[in-house]
């Protein structure tokens, strides 16, 4: 009990080699602690202030402290303990003071959200671009083959049914574009529909359905030019790095709650990146077309047709699902097209 107005408190002492509790009274006296045993032994000890190490104040009911000899004290939280701590000039660690404050918690929440947003918006894309530029091209060559194999095994794509001369005409039209022509592959893909996509290793897959929709080899080449933009800027690899990082963070955040939720959030958060990639690829495609003496309008027209086609029969994963609004992209391409061509 508190007597004589001094700071004192009753608690339990454990010696570290048995779980037997010894009732004790701890009091602050000039320059130290006075520890007296209340178990009838009349034992008494004088301890310097630094001999007691206060454990961080995390328990709401009991505060623990350790003594140099390995024994430990358990003291009830409350005004008596506060007086002891004040009298012994104990100062809590800054982290534990932060963790007790509601306004710091709110501040931490706001800073955390700002940091997460900045990382998502600018940090991660910059890191992914930096990393992707440093991955040697041949390291990814096997990766594309693996991916095509997976798509084939899953029944998403099948061998092409296009006649050889039609394919040759498209390859020739694409070869007219400046720069090296990436590995061009044709596949029938009834489940995907009219589509073309660039794989992380630089392979460009064109579906038979797209060729039919395009009508002319030059129109297909316009889409290939767009895909070459994806290859040039390594969008596939960057997207891969970014979505893996997002999946890790979302997984840690949502944790054990639900794996489906993790996948859904990852797809949702990743789709914002792919929109920017589309604009970038459109710009690159337009430049290639202009360089080949063709108009970026070819690509704009293809986008309009793909949009109309997707509107008619939205298959599982249409070409435009992850793409920005088509009218805006078409406008951009028209702005990039000189008026005297076509």
């Amino acid at each position: 009990m508190e007597s004589r107005g001094d700071a004192s408190i009753e608690g339990l002492l454990f010696d570290g080699s048995s779980s037997r509790a010894r009732p004790v009274r701890l009091a602050v006296v000039a320059g130290g602690f006075d520890l007296s045993f209340l178990d009838g032994s009349h034992g008494r000890e004088r301890l310097p202030l630094h001999a007691i190490r206060w454990q961080e104040a995390l328990g709401h009911q009991v505060r623990r402290a350790t003594l140099a000899d390995g024994s430990s004290l358990e003291l009830p939280c409350g005004p008596a303990l506060d007086r002891i701590l004040a009298a012994s000039r104990h100062r809590e660690a800054s982290v534990s003071r932060w963790q007790a404050s509601a306004s710091i918690a709110l501040g931490a929440l706001l800073v955390l959200l700002a940091v997460l947003f900045a990382t998502y918006r600018w940090g991660l894309p910059a890191v992914a671009e930096h990393l992707a530029a440093r991955v040697p091209a041949d390291a990814l060559a096997g990766f594309d083959g693996h991916l095509v194999g997976t798509l084939e095994a899953g029944g998403m794509i099948a061998p092409t049914t296009l006649p050889a001369d039609q394919r040759a005409a498209i390859v020739a039209a694409s070869r007219a574009l400046p720069g090296p022509l990436p590995d061009l592959r044709f596949h029938a893909a009834p489940g995907i529909g009219a589509n073309a996509f660039a794989l992380p290793g630089g392979t460009i897959v064109v579906t038979d359905e797209l060729v039919e929709l395009a009508g002319s080899p030059r129109a297909v080449a316009a889409v290939v030019a767009h895909e070459m933009g994806h290859v040039h800027h390594r969008h596939g690899l960057r997207q891969l790095i970014q979505s893996s990082a997002i999946a890790v963070v979302v997984g840690l955040w949502i944790g054990d709650f639900d794996s489906m939720l993790t996948v859904a959030s990852t797809v949702l958060l990743g789709s914002a990146y792919s929109r920017e990639f589309e604009y970038e690829a459109d710009g690159h495609g337009a430049a290639l077309l202009t360089g080949a003496g063709l108009s970026p309008r070819l690509l704009a027209d293809m986008l309009a047709r793909l949009s109309a086609d997707a509107g008619e029969s939205q298959g599982a994963g249409g070409y435009l699902s992850s793409h920005p609004p088509t009218p805006e992209r078409i406008d951009r391409l028209h702005r990039l097209s000189p008026n005297d061509q076509e």
């Binding site: 709401h60 009911q61 982290v95």
Partner: peptide, 21 residues
Amino acid sequence: FTGSGGAYFRIWIVNLLLSVL
């Protein structure tokens, strides 16, 4: 158990921020 969700939230959010930083 003498803990509370509110108190743990404060610990958690400070932990999270410092871990991210």
